[in-house]
Design a protein around this nucleic acid. Structure first.
Lengths: 127, 127
DNA sequence: CTCTTATTTTAGTTTGATCTAAATTAAGAG
DNA sequence: CTCTTAATTTAGATCAAACTAAAATAAGAG
């Protein structure tokens, strides 16, 4: 299972998720709130990758999903990760790292951010 | 320098090169001979990545370049790599791993494999 | 000088990882 | 049932890693 470990840990975004979970279990929503620069969908996809790699586990609690890091699975690289996260120099590099290694389409402005769908406003709407 | 280490070691192709160099120093050509499924250029590019990451070093010897692995730089992940390489199960997975994670264009048949450019054949060539 | 061998570099192509936006699933509340 | 909230899944877009082929560089031999 080390192949999946290496590829999973190679992604800055997944390392960011692991760092969040390192301090304690979180729901998928809480993880997303801590990562304002990506959509919920993107977070969910990365969580699935970590789940398939066996690096995190998930437990349902009502309508929430609580994620937990599996330290046993991460033990081969844990010292390196912890050093990266505790080293002051690394903290400074975190933002730059995320910005530079970003993949996929650039974030687009939401077409109408705060305007909720007024589906039920005019029920007898004729156009 | 751990960021470069993680990304460098995340590539199966680069791990293959590191595994070859693990047993002893090799010239760029010898490395390429051991990897028949890629061009010399591809090997050279990956060697440059490993060089820039500080995971290998290079020394010129006549017209050859001898590459050597820098074990100090690889020490944080060396145990994991060595386990992968010595584990019998992993050996079976090596080919599959390379085939599955392959990127870039598929290998094309050389247009004329053994036919060398006959540049000097007809010196007074009129077209 | 030319020819050969060893290697790197350049230019262009392909592919998979990562992302967005939207659709879907699921579960609790009214 | 509908409405809301939480999360996943799908379909499509973008981007950079990894590759190929060919050109360029370098160095030894004739």
């Amino acid at each position: 299972m080390d192949l999946a470990l290496l590829t999973a840990v190679a992604s800055p975004r997944r390392r960011e998720i692991l760092r969040l979970l390192w301090d304690g279990d979180l729901t998928a929503g809480a993880i997303h709130e801590a990562m304002p620069d990506v959509t919920f969908g993107a977070v969910s996809l990365q969580l699935k990758v970590l789940l398939d790699a066996g690096l995190v586990e998930c437990q349902a609690d009502r309508q929430f999903r609580v994620y937990r890091v599996r330290r046993e699975a991460l033990s081969p690289v844990a010292p390196m990760l912890e050093q990266m996260w505790t080293d002051a120099l690394w903290r400074l590099k975190l933002k730059a790292e995320l910005a530079e290694t970003r993949r996929g389409p650039k974030p687009r402005r939401r077409s109408r951010p705060a305007l909720a769908r007024r589906r039920s406003l005019s029920k007898t709407e004729d156009r």
